[in-house]
Amino acid sequence: MRTFRLIGQFMRASFQEEAASRTNFFVNLLHSILNLGTGVLGVVVLFGQIDEVQGWNLASTLALLGVYLIVSALRGLFIGPGLDALAGMDGKIWSGTFDFTILRPLNTQFLVSVHKWRLFAILDLGLGLGVLGAAVARLGVSLSAGQVVAFLLALFAGVLTLYAILLAFAALVFWSPGVLFTWVFDAFFQMARYPVGMYPGWLRLVLTWVIPVGIITTVPAQALSGSLTPGMLFGGLGLAALLVVGASLLFRRGLRRYASASS
């Protein structure tokens, strides 16, 4: 109960901060629309030339793009803003205000993950859902209840995986506070816009098992198009759990290493 009240307070304060600069609203709106437009046009241009690539057609690839937009929006909503605030030259660790985060009588990982929200991302979430809905309608199949459950489970595993990777990358900041490690991740995450099957074999393996951004979007999209095997679904869930545990351990090690910027 207290956790929810706490998160409510964080959301409230974040929203007030966001609302403090009103021009940003239109800039954010522009960015959201550009992101949506380039994503959709990229897929449309590709399938204007060809009907099918490696078993993916326009509708299923658009569904995957929808999942990508939804997952990115969730990240932008609360995981991203908090974790991104740690790194970089003006980040909390470099400037030493992370001291205050550590001194709070709460689990530091929890605090870091949920203390900052970007409510504007709800619009992105809506756009993502819109793309997903349109794509499913185009797919022209009626989804069984089992498929919907599988999709939701796969999406949950995807979001957990994303969280774990972001947390692990953020933890690296304790070793090198100036480096924006999440940028490396962002670059790889871009690849999740397309199905892993569209990449050459070696990269497919990397994107599935090493930096598993591929399965964050590919597995849920497969659940919708009906090409997902149960093994892949449970493998994905297991991997997500493993990653969360591993990332938490890394974060805790990083915390132990943390020594404030000034002596």
């Binding site: 207290r2 009240r5 706490l6 307070q9 964080f10 409230r12 304060a13 007030q16 901060e17 403090a20 600069s21 709070r104 009588p105 709460l106 605090l111």
Partner: peptide, 17 residues
């Protein structure tokens, strides 16, 4: 918190503690 009045920062801290 830089952009909002102190009272709101205090509320967050009250909840945190």
């Amino acid at each position: 918190l830089w952009d909002i009045p102190p009272l709101d920062s205090f509320r967050v801290l009250g909840e945190v503690y």
